[in-house]
């Protein structure tokens, strides 16, 4: 697919912004509510999932340190 992009003469750096102001970007031709709701949910889910292992790790560290202290 990368190769075919080169054949088509596609240059991503030549692409222009599709909206001429911040407010038209937010409105998205009437679809702004749908688009930003979808991206908002995605952001929330990814952040939650990304932080989950860190939370698990902290809880485990606390538990293991406590049991190590208990043995001493």
């Amino acid at each position: 697919m990368i190769a075919s992009a080169a054949v088509d003469g596609f240059d991503p750096w030549s692409q222009n912004m599709q909206f001429d102001s911040f407010s038209t970007w937010l409105q998205m031709g009437g679809h702004g509510g749908y688009v930003f709701a979808a991206y908002g949910i995605a952001f929330a889910v990814l952040v939650y999932q990304g932080l989950a292992p860190l939370r698990k790790r902290r809880a485990l560290r606390r538990r293991l340190m406590a049991s190590l202290e208990g043995e001493r």
Binding site: Q15, Q18, F19, G29, G30, H31
Partner: peptide, 18 residues
């Protein structure tokens, strides 16, 4: 790229960005 630079769909408009 998807939210601002990709072109809108000619039928679906900007909801296509989802």
């Amino acid at each position: 790229w998807g939210l601002a630079f990709a072109p809108a769909d000619y039928q679906q408009g900007n909801s296509f960005r989802i």
